[in-house]
Structure formats: C-alpha cells, structure tokens
Write a protein that binds this DNA or RNA. Structure first.
Lengths: 243, 243
DNA sequence: GATAATTTGTGCGTATGTATG
DNA sequence: CCATACATACGCACAAATTAT
C-alpha cells in the first residue's frame, strides 16, 4: 500500500495546493494564494512552495505573472481519454492520490441498453458496481460499471478482496482491456448526485459512457461515469497518423 | 409527384424524420410517431417510411419494438472526435445537411490563452471567425476559430469567397490539418448563447477547445465550440492497437 | 382472463427508372 | 434496340407483440 520511501516534501506541497484548489472549487483565471501565505499555512520554506508551484506550472495547471500573482489555467483535473481507462494512473500522473469508495455492488438484470452494449441477450444478468472516485480525498466522479455475470461468475467475491476493477478482472483471467468507444454528453445533477459529489445545483455533470473490450475484442465492461465539470475536464489527444 | 430524382425518396424521408426529432428536441427513450402517422404526414408509402426507419435503426439512432413503437436511442447527432475535424463530413455521414452561418469575422489581439495555444507571442494578432453550425437548417453549434494573422494575412479576403475554413486554408497553402488535442468541459449557456442556439435554460452546453496543426505539426487554428447537449453528443472511438 | 385495437414485422405482387452489355 | 439486373416506390394481406378495455 504505502511506498516504503517518503515522497519529497515539495510533492506533498503540490498535492496540498491541488487539494486546496479543489476544495475552494477554483476555476480558470482565479488567483491563487501568494507564496508567503502558503509558506505560513504549510510551515515550509519558500523554495519548497516555489518548487511545487513550478511543477504545477510545467504541468499547465497554473500560470505565474510577475508582480500579479499565480492564476488557475485549467480545472484541477484533466481526465485523459486514452486507450486504457485506468482511473488510478490518470490521477497519479497529475500527482493526485487516487482512491475509490464502493457505494454498491450486486447482480441485476441488464437494462436493454447495457445488454446491447455488452452484446448480451435481453434479460441477461450483469454485475453492477457503483463507485465514487476520489482525488486526494475529494470526490470527483461517480461511476457505474456493468460486467457480464456469465463470464465473471465470481466477480463480486474477487472484488471484495481487491477493491479494484482492473485487478479483479486479472483474477478472472483478463490480463488487459482497452476502451473501444466513448460517448460524451452532459446534464445537470440529480439531488442524489449533488450530495455525493458535493456540487452546486448549476454545475453540469460531464457524462461518459464507454465500452471496454478484452484483447480479443469481446466487450467485458460497460461503464458510465459522472464528473463535476468545475473540477474535471476531459482531454483527448489524437494519435498522430498520416492520411 | 414532385420527387427530387437526385436522392431517393426514402433518404429524403430519413432526413425529415431527423429534422422532426431535432425540432421536437427529442431525447433518448422518447417515442417516435408511428409508421401510419408518418405515412399520412409525408404522403408516402408505408414501405418508404419503413426503409427510412430501418436506415436510422442501422445507424443506431433509434430502436424498434414490435407492438410498442420506435424509440430514440441517441441524441440526434453524434459529433465524431477524430483526427480530422470536418464539420460537413461528420454531418453528411449521418444524412444531415450541413451548413454554417457567419456571425462575425475580424482581426483581434490574441487573448493570452489563445496566443499560448497557437505558440504566438503575447500581443500577436489573430483572425477571429465566429460561426453558427446548422444541421438540416437547425442550429447545433456555436464556434469561435482563431488563426494567426501573421501566417494567413489574406484569410478574411479568401474566407468571404468560400465560406469554409478548410477551403480557405487550402487557398492559403494548407492542404491538410489534423486535430492535435481536444479538451472537453461543460457549462450552462449565457442568454446570448441560448438565443442563438435556441436551447432551454437548464440544458448544459458541451464545450470543446481544440488545437489543429498542419502536416508539419505547426498550430494553425485554435477553436472553441459550444454544442447543445440535448441535440448532440461527442463520440470518441479509440483506434485499435495492440499493447 | 379474454378480447379488441394498435403497432411493428414479413411476404408477395406490380410498376417504373436506370445502368450494363 | 433489346435483354437483363437492380434499386426504387406503391398496394395489399396477415403474423406477432403489446396495450387498452
């Protein structure tokens, strides 16, 4: 679980700054606290704070302007839509500590749309996992995952051991899986979603629906993720290819 | 009967059904009019209506259930985020008639964020094109495009001839360009955006910001597009590649 | 529970226009 | 010019699923 070696202090400060940005719900162009203020708040040397800021600047998250201060450039989190959907890795790349809280797990009859996405017959049973994704302790996403019970009859049992979909699938014999297609839409949150994600009424959710397939191209997971649009944005980088 | 021999009648009916779905602002799970109703409304044979429906079903837009009716499966339009951002082609693939209305064109000093995205010095001049995108006559997107004036000094002059960014760029010597990165977020519309796009107050806009580069990798256009989330959804298909 | 009305699914028949050789 | 093949368009009848009465 915890790494044997301690993380450097400046990285810890980086995380605390990001957590602060999330908790204050800061949006692009908002002004960040000054160096000296954070020195006092975190009880570290000015160089340590500067190193943390520099790191955030290089990642494109903030922007420094001499004499004026530092300003938010991007939402706290960029969710990279790549071939491999790994919540933990995406957040770890941004020096955020990923975690997930299980909200519910059980077997259901697949709704028609989900049966179709997974190439199942109508009425087939699926495992439904609902989770809350957190970045450094702050809720950022609410996701539902559906997997064919027929193919993974012991999924729930294994999941309780790992608390990770990727590792549970490995136990079920799926070494790798990739995102096949993702559809993105948006809507306002329900009251339940607002209380779980802690978002104001007028902040829309970004909704992604994606289908993941195993190396042979078989659909093994259908997922729907809700993300607060004031804290997270999607990022799609096209692979370069000649036409 | 007046029937354009250009396109078969059933395709014309397909377009009219889609236009109807847009104008009625239909969302997934809404029920469509019956065959017999559309036979009366469009004045065509039942087989012709059925063929149009079948076509929409094969494209995944609607779903038929015997004895119950046909139901909307997806928002009227899927905007495919691929390597080449070509509004016209994306809509034409869905049997929608693309068009664009110019809202404004002129030279501005680039805002800092845009100068950075285009790798320009602060204070550089850019051409700003604002357009409304239409699908079969219905507004679906509102987009702002920024291009470096230094590289395309005669852009405005050429644009007035073509009314197409792709063709104008070709006249400027750019034969091809690809999308490098796209960021997706969401927010509620301003009153101006609502009046242009004709969306209700509570329907969020999907906001995409993308940077397009020429074949040598130079940024040539930065674009921001707003889309009504009840009419359009983004679709991202990952290119298959082995790991 | 039984029946009728509605709606989609399927099959067959007829006629016309267009491209091909 | 003709024969053939194919797509388009319309008309009619009945089967199957669902819903309302």
């Amino acid at each position: 679980m915890a790494s044997a070696r301690q993380d450097p202090l400046w990285l810890e400060v980086t995380r605390r700054i990001q957590t602060m940005m999330q908790e204050a719900a800061m949006v692009p162009s908002d002004r960040l606290p000054t160096e000296t203020e954070l020195v006092a708040r975190f009880g570290v040397n000015r160089h340590t704070v500067r190193r943390a800021f520099k790191h955030l600047e290089e990642k494109g998250k903030i922007e420094a302007r001499q004499g004026r201060g530092r300003f938010v450039r991007m939402p706290a989190i960029q969710y990279q839509i790549g071939a491999r959907p790994r919540f933990s890795n995406i957040l770890a790349d941004q020096d955020l500590e990923p975690s997930a809280e299980l909200l519910g797990i059980g077997v259901e009859t697949a709704p028609e749309a989900i049966a179709r996405a997974l190439s199942l017959r109508t009425g087939s049973k699926v495992v439904h996992v609902e989770r809350m994704g957190l970045a450094s302790g702050n809720p950022v996403s609410l996701s539902s995952h559906y997997l064919p019970l027929g193919r993974f009859p012991r999924f729930i049992e294994y999941y309780e051991r790992h608390h990770s979909i990727t590792r549970t699938l490995q136990d079920c014999g799926v070494e790798d899986y990739v995102r096949r297609s993702t559809r993105v839409t948006s809507r306002l949150p329900t009251s339940r979603e607002r209380s779980i994600l802690g978002v104001p009424k007028h902040v829309p959710l970004i909704v992604t629906r994606s289908c993941n397939v195993d190396p042979r191209g078989w659909p093994i997971e259908y997922g729907e993720a809700l993300m607060a649009s004031d804290r997270i944005e999607l990022e799609i980088t096209s692979p370069l290819r000649s036409g």
